[in-house]
Structures are given as structure tokens and as C-alpha cells.
Design a binder for these strands. Structure first.
Length: 669
DNA sequence: ACGGGTAGGACG
DNA sequence: TCGTCCTAC
């Protein structure tokens, strides 16, 4: 739901960058012969040619639309090339698109705060960069403005359609009499054009962009001229732009709220909203939404660009429409296993690449069944603490499913359980997701505080284990069987360290498994999120090309050098995947997240002997995961960052010693 | 019985 | 908090 935020007084320069038919471009880069042809990306072509999820602009010219079936697209455009989405584990696999999106983000993030809004959209706060440019190298002093900048659409500029358009744009960009805000916008437009060219050279992807004073307007603008163009929104143009702008096309108003505005208030354009007082809108839609509506009608939006390059959750799901609905626990389990397998791979990759761990596993399902006839009951989502390891995730997810199913079926289900007439339920959608993703805490002080007093940090490992085990009360969703089997995520690509993977035992189907399980599954942990740790920008040897050095004759050459640069980067990225040990060594310099409970500062000091470093070792495979849940929360967060990677390190040298010594600093701040 | 698969955010 | 609902691409 929209929430009103005060607009900051200081003018900001915000860009919204939107990749053009992104999935198509990704496929075209893979198969360059598709460039320039009407094409579309389709998934599941079994039924009516599959569903289109991205359509090239050439194909749009023939009337092909998203959400057509492949067959329909062929009808309106027989020569269309349909490319299939990659499939893995029997489901669509979007990872190539996600990765391609990451390429783009890493380029765009160079010039300012960057928010990855979706797989193919990014917001940028270019305020600082624009101010710097205006100070040090203002457009009015430029003798030449790059073609790409001149191709900008500047809203409100007279004679948009005229032949002298570029001349007009140049005059606007370089106008020394312009409003300060417009000068900043001009700088923003130049920076944005440069970034888009950089994206094109390094990724071969085109994008469109909007440049404005806030996110809402930037987003509106980026969609106004596509593909491969950019649109600038001077303040003076805002009212005119919004006045006739269809309300339903505003972000957040494409759904029920927009429909209500139309149906209940007769508001069809943003301008129509101006007649309503803030109080009236608040009465109708609540204080927050009312204020938000009142503001957006005036082009006001104070939302900040979140500095976030990484997703906040990972999910894997699949639908099973109509006749394909899942009707037995065995098929549900099969598909859950597939989904969990993918999810596990993705969170493990996140851990390796970004040093982040997910802490909550959630299962969603959609179902129809006996209870749906009378009541429109929904299958409840369920969540539990996330344990790393594919087998564990699969096991936990299936337990969550069973818990949800019992609830869904209600008392009716309990009665007929185990009878010869199974429930007539059917699952039409399944998804699992991993959320509460936090950067691995890099300090160790809270562990020391926990053991402080009774436990010296360099005490023998045995005693540490004893402490763990004494206080252990298993609470994990599954009975914590002795986890001596070490789990590691599958990472075929990274052959150096993480390739070992030991599959969990398959979870046997137990219809009547532990009804009270769910009560224990709920994770009451309230861990304070630590600062996300962004992947280091390993942009070695990027082609640096200024706007003026970008004549079209050079594009071909630059693209090819950029292409080989990319490959170099990939290789060096692989090499850069350090060993676990190296990871810890590099991390122990980092900062300790803040925490509240005190008194243990002396114990911290106590271990700061030997130049602030101490060695600590223990036998990893003798610590049961379930004990961790019983530790104080701030300890849990910290411990998990140690134990999990440690187990993984252990598998690397499987058969060898199981004791690993870690070195860490006790410095805190 | 469908755009499918993902994401993010607000609310109670 | 968790679970639900809404929205968007």
C-alpha cells in the first residue's frame, strides 16, 4: 500500500532505468541472429504454445502482446521467433535473467545510490553526481553534447516533434539562465545517458530511462519513450504531465485502489484527483493512503532510493493448473523437492557470493478441496526457521505443507485421516521462499560475551561443546537427528571448494507426523538485521569511454572488446571465490554489529590478548543444529555464520581432520 | 482453468 | 511476529 512520505526540500535527481523487453534481449545476446527480428520469450509451450513473458518491439509492431499464448502470437505474427525459457527441475528457471539483471545493476551502481527494484528495473539517486557535475563541469561549458543526450525527450519543451528538436534539447541542456533545478536535471540526463551507453557496451542491452526529481516521476518518464530512449521531467512540466495522465497507469493504482478511484470517485486522470481535499481522501482511504494520493496528484513523492542491490528474498514456485493439480502427498512432495532444490541452490549461492544467510523458510500453496465448496478457505502459508542443506529444506517444507494441509482441511481432515477415503484436496500452486536474509555478522564479540566469565575464549574445544550440548533442547521442525552428515549446497560451477554435496535421506511420508509440530516450528527469533554486505565490485579493466568518445563507428569494436572483458571478469570472478578460510580471514577485520545487552565487555577484553587475536577450535560435526535454536538470539545469528560455512569447509576436506581452527579478532565497535 | 514466476510492502 | 492481501513486472 502506498504510504505518504514528505518530499525533501533539497532537489534530488532520480533516474529510473528500465530494460527494454529484457528477457528477449538476454536471449538475443545468446543468439545474435535473433536481433532485429520479431521474437518473444515463452514458457511451457505445451499448452497453446506457452505463455509469452517478453515480446520484442518488432513483434509488438505486429500486435503481439504479453500474456498472449504462443499460438495467438503466431496467428498475428507468423514469422515470430519464440524462444523458450530455460527449464530446470521441471520448472521455469529464471536464473539467467536474474544474472543478467545483476550485470546491469553493477554498472548502474557506479554513479550513485542504486536500488534494484525488480529483475529489470533500477532506481538511481544521482543527486550527488549531478551536483558535482554542475560544480565542476557544467553543461553550459561543454562545446559538444553527446548525441545520446540530445536524443533525450524533455517534457514541456516546445515543438517536441520539430526537426530542430535536438537543437532545442541542446539549448535546454546548456542554458545558463536555467533554473537551478533544471540545470541539475540536465546533469542527471547527461549522467544517465552515459550510464545507458556504458550498459550497452558492457552488456549489449539497451534500456530506457526517466530522469526527474523523484521516483514516481522518473518511473512515469522511463515508460514514455521506449525502447532505448530517455525522458526528462522538468518541474515546470509536472502539472501538465499529470493532469491528463490515466490514474490506472500510476504505480500502485493499477489494481483495486485505482479501480475504486475510477468507480467510486469518477477519477480517471491524476488531475481529477486535485479536486479532493487531503482530508476527504484520508476519510475515504485512510490517513496514509489519502495523504499519498493527495501528494502524487501534485507530483510529490518523497520515497528515497533504497541502497539495495540484492533481493530481500528468494522464491521458487510453480503452478499446477486445472487437470494438472496435485492430488497426492507423494506428488506434492516430489514437486516440493524440486522447488526446494532450486531454492537451496540459490540461497547457497547468495551465501557464497554475498555472505548472506536466509533465516526463514515459507511455504505457500493454493488449493481447492472439500472446504472450498462452501467456504472460500485459502491454504494457509506456513513458515519456520530455515536450516541450510537441501535435504533439510525439503524436509521442513514438506512438514510445513502437511501442517498447512491439516489446517486447510480442518477438523474434517482429522476425522478421515487414514481412512480408506482420502481427502479430495488438490494443489494448484506451490512455492517456497527464503526470507529474512541478513549479512553474516562479522564480529565475534557476542559469542565471547555469552561464554564470558565461565568460559575462556581459548579454552579447549571440548568445554565449548559441552556448554552447547548441556543447554540443548531440540526444537527444530524435524526431530534433529544427529547431524553428523554434513551438508553442502550444490555448486557445480565452483569446482574449487564447494562441490561436495551429501544428499539427505529422503523423508519418508508419514501421514500422521507429529501434529503438534507446528507449535515448535514458529521462530520467535528477533534478530536485528545487520548491515548488508555488498559484493565487492570487481570491475577490473572496464572500458572507460566518455560520452564524447562514443561515435557509432566505434560501437562495434567496443562491443567486441567489452565482450571479451566480460569473459575475463567471469573468469576472475571464479578465481576470486576464495576458500572458506580466506573468507573468514578477510572478514575478521570487519565491524561488529551493534547489540544491546551488556556486562560482558570485560570478557571481550579478556580475549583481546595476543594482539587482539585468539585461536578457537572445536569439532564441527559434534554440534547439533538444534542446540543453536536454544541460544540467545544474538548468539544464534553469529554462530550460524560460523557453523554453517565451517561445515561446508569440512566437506571439502572430507575424510580428513574434522577440527578446524579459526582465527578471529575480538575487536569490537 | 490460468500469463507464470517472483518480488516487495502494508496491514492487523 | 506471522500470515494475508495487494501490487507490479
Amino acid at each position: 500500500m502506498p504510504v505518504a512520505r514528505p518530499e525533501s526540500s533539497h532537489p534530488r535527481i532520480i533516474a529510473h532505468v528500465d530494460m527494454d523487453c529484457f528477457y528477449v534481449q538476454v536471449e538475443q545476446r545468446k543468439k545474435p541472429e535473433l536481433r532485429g527480428l520479431p521474437s518473444a520469450v515463452v514458457q511451457y509451450n505445451e499448452w497453446k504454445g506457452g505463455g509469452l513473458i517478453a515480446v520484442s518491439y518488432e513483434a509488438r509492431g505486429f500486435g503481439v502482446k504479453r500474456s498472449m499464448r504462443g499460438d495467438e502470437a503466431k496467428q498475428v505474427c507468423p514469422q515470430i521467433h519464440l524462444v523458450q525459457v530455460p527449464v530446470a527441475r521441471g520448472k521455469a528457471d529464471l536464473s539467467t535473467y536474474r544474472n543478467a539483471g545483476s550485470e546491469v545493476v553493477s554498472i548502474l551502481a557506479r554513479k550513485g545510490r542504486c536500488e534494484r527494484a525488480s529483475i529489470d528495473e533500477v532506481y538511481l539517486d544521482l543527486t550527488d553526481a549531478a551536483e558535482a557535475m554542475l560544480r565542476e563541469n557544467p553543461p553550459e561549458s561543454l562545446e559538444a553534447v553527446h548525441e545520446e543526450v540530445l536524443k533525450s525527450h524533455v517534457l514541456g519543451l516546445a515543438n517536441e516533434d520539430e526537426i530542430d528538436k535536438k537543437e532545442n534539447v541542446k539549448r535546454w541542456m546548456c542554458n545558463s539562465d536555467a533554473d537551478h533545478r533544471d540545470k541539475l536535471l540536465a546533469c542527471g540526463a547527461i549522467i544517465t545517458a552515459e550510464l545507458r551507453m556504458q550498459v550497452l557496451m558492457e552488456t549489449e542491452f539497451t534500456c530506457s530511462a526517466g530522469v526527474a526529481h523523484n521516483k514516481m516521476l522518473a518511473k512515469l518518464a522511463s515508460a514514455m519513450n521506449k525502447p532505448a530512449q530517455q525522458t526528462v521531467v522538468p518541474s515546470s512540466s509536472v502539472n501538465g504531465l499529470l493532469y491528463s495522465f490515466p490514474i490506472k497507469k500510476m504505480k500502485q493504482l493499477g489494481g483495486k485502489l485505482g479501480t475504486s478511484l475510477q468507480g467510486d470517485l469518477g477519477v480517471n486522470t491524476v488531475g481529477d484527483l486535485l479536486q479532493f481535499s487531503e482530508e476527504k481522501l484520508q476519510d475515504l482511504y485512510g490517513v496514509k493512503t489519502g495523504t499519498w494520493l493527495w501528494n502524487i496528484a501534485r507530483g510529490i513523492s518523497g520515497e528515497e532510493v533504497q541502497g539495495r542491490l540484492l533481493p530481500k528474498s528468494h522464491g521458487s514456485g510453480k503452478s499446477f493448473p486445472g487437470p494438472r493439480a496435485l492430488k497426492t502427498a507423494a506428488t506434492v512432495q516430489h514437486w516440493l523437492n524440486q522447488l526446494c532444490d532450486e531454492l537451496s541452490e540459490r540461497i547457497c549461492r547468495d551465501l557464497e557470493e554475498n555472505k548472506r544467510t536466509a533465516h526463514t523458510l515459507t511455504l505457500h500453496a493454493t488449493a481447492y478441496g472439500p472446504s472450498e465448496r462452501d467456504s472460500h478457505k485459502k491454504f494457509p502459508s506456513k513458515s519456520c526457521p530455515l536450516r541450510y542443506g537441501t535435504g533439510k529444506i525439503q524436509e521442513d517444507a514438506f512438514n510445513l505443507f502437511q501442517a498447512g494441509l491439516r489446517e486447510y482441511l480442518g477438523s474434517y481432515g482429522a476425522k478421515t485421516q487414514g481412512s480408506q477415503h482420502p481427502e479430495r484436496w488438490a494443489i494448484t500452486g506451490l512455492s517456497v521462499s527464503a526470507s529474512k536474509i541478513m549479512a553474516i555478522p562479522s564480529g565475534t564479540c557476542s559469542i565471547m560475551k555469552y561464554f564470558g566469565g565461565e568460559q575462556r575464549c581459548d579454552a579447549p574445544a571440548r568445554q565449548v561443546e559441552a556448554n552447547f550440548i548441556q543447554e540443548a533442547v531440540p526444537t527444530s521442525p524435524s526431530d534433529s537427528k544427529n547431524c553428523t552428515e554434513l551438508e553442502c549446497c550444490e555448486r557445480v560451477e565452483l569446482t574449487d571448494n564447494y562441490s561436495d554435496y551429501i544428499e539427505d535421506n529422503k523423508v519418508p511420508m508419514e501421514e500422521d507426523k507429529n501434529l503438534s509440530l507446528l507449535g515448535h516450528e514458529v521462530d520467535s527469533s528477533t534478530k536485528e538485521a545487520s548491515q548488508p554486505h555488498f559484493p565487492s565490485e570487481s570491475c577490473s579493466g572496464k572500458t572507460k569511454v566518455s560520452a564524447q568518445e562514443f561515435p557509432s563507428e566505434d560501437v562495434r569494436h567496443q562491443l567486441s572488446t567489452a565482450r571479451s572483458k566480460r569473459k575475463e571478469q567471469k573468469n576472475s570472478a571464479l578465481k576470486d571465490q576464495g576458500t572458506i578460510l580466506r573468507f573468514f580471514k578477510s572478514n575478521d577485520q570487519a565491524q561488529e554489529p551493534t547489540r544491546s545487552q551488556g556486562d560482558g565487555s570485560n570478557s571481550c577484553n579478556a580475549i583481546q590478548n595476543g594482539g587482539g587475536r585468539a585461536a578457537w577450535s572445536y569439532k564441527v560435526d559434534e554440534i547439533d543444529e538444534s542446540v543453536i535454536a536454544e541460544l540467545p538470539e544474538e548468539i544464534q545469528a553469529e554462530l550460524e555464520s560460523w557453523i554453517r560455512p565451517q561445515k561446508r569447509a569440512n566437506t571439502v576436506k572430507r575424510g580428513g581432520a574434522t577440527t578446524i581452527a579459526h582465527y578471529f579478532s575480538a575487536n569490537q565497535k
